[in-house]
Every structure is written in structure tokens, then in C-alpha cells.
Computed example of a mutant assay.
Amino acid sequence: MAAQKGKDLLLKIDDGTGAFVTVAGLRSRQLRFNAETVDITHAESVGRWRELLDGAGVKRASVAGSGLFRDAASDALMRQIFFDGAVRDFQVILPDFGVIEGPFQVTALEFAGNHNGEVTYDLALESAGAVGFEAA
């Protein structure tokens, strides 16, 4: 994969009609995948090395972003689903890699502003079910 522009990594949200709209104003985006391990080490483990159970444990995806508050339709949608505690489908588009899609819940939504600057926001999403991947 060749070098990519950070602005091409997109976060999109299902607007309730099945169409995905880009979350407005984001300047930075981050996607993390994590998997918990299940330790099955026992007294007879070879060389006392830790052993892990294959295919076990909980997987999750986390998305974080920050940007400018633009008061766009996607801003209002994010605020509403946060206050509703709703789970919505999101897409994370990674150029030349693929699309990650699945249900996420907005777990943090923060707004900030300096006296002589713009209003910014930070958000955090956590996967709330199976997340799919489609290669580019």
C-alpha cells in the first residue's frame, strides 16, 4: 500500500435512511482493533511459556476523531444518537485498504473552544456487534 493522505480516511454514519453521510469537520481520525486473550497456561506448558486459546476472546473496534464543529446535519445526528444511547451503523473508509462497517455506539462526545479560536469536538465510538471488512 502506497502512502495515503490522512484526509482520505473517512468516517461515515447511517443517516437513518440506509445512506451513509460523511461526519463533517473531522481533522483527524483513528481506528483501533483489539482482541482479548484467553490464557490457558498450565503446569506442563513447554518451557513455562504462556499459551493462548486459539480463536477465543472478545474482539472490538474503536474509532476516535477530532475536528471542527460545523453545525452540519451529521453533527446533529451524532449529538442525537449520543443522547439517545443509540447504536448506529458506521463505515470507516481506509484508502487502498478497504471499508470497515458495522454497529457502533458513540461513547464520548466533547466540545471545546478557545476565546480566539474555533469550536472543536472530539468523539469516540465503540463497536456494538460484528464488524465487517471489505477489501478495496
Rank of each mutant, 00 (worst) to 15 (best):
R29Q: 11
F104I: 11
T41Q: 04
D96F: 10
G16A: 04
G16H: 05
P95I: 14
A136Q: 09
G55S: 07
R50E: 13
G55W: 06
M1S: 09
R27K: 14
V106D: 00
F82A: 11
V63Y: 01
E101F: 06
D54I: 08
D75N: 12
V23Q: 00
R60D: 06
S45E: 08
A24Q: 05
A72W: 07
D54E: 15
E126A: 05
A24E: 04
A19N: 15
V46T: 13
R27W: 11
R50L: 12
L11K: 03
G57L: 06
G102R: 03
D54V: 11
L9F: 12
V119W: 02
A128G: 05
A86V: 02
L9T: 11
A73P: 04
R27V: 12
D96Q: 14
G6A: 10
Q91K: 07
V131K: 02
L109Q: 08
G55H: 07
Q80P: 00
P95E: 13
D14N: 08
W49V: 07
G102K: 09
V63F: 08
L9I: 13
T120L: 08
V63K: 00
G55M: 08
A108P: 06
A76M: 10
G129I: 03
M78Q: 00
V131R: 04
D75W: 01
P95W: 13
A61K: 11
Q91V: 00
T37A: 04
A2T: 10
G117N: 10
R88A: 07
N116M: 10
T41A: 01
F97A: 15
L123W: 05
A73Q: 12
G117Q: 12
L31S: 06
R29H: 09
A135D: 06
G98Y: 02
L53Q: 08
Q80G: 07
E110N: 13
H42R: 06
R48C: 07
G55Q: 03
F111Y: 13
F133S: 09
F20C: 12
T107W: 00
G102F: 05
R70W: 10
G117A: 09
W49M: 14
A124R: 12
I40N: 07
G113Y: 03
L52K: 15
H115G: 09
S74C: 11
F97K: 12
A112R: 14
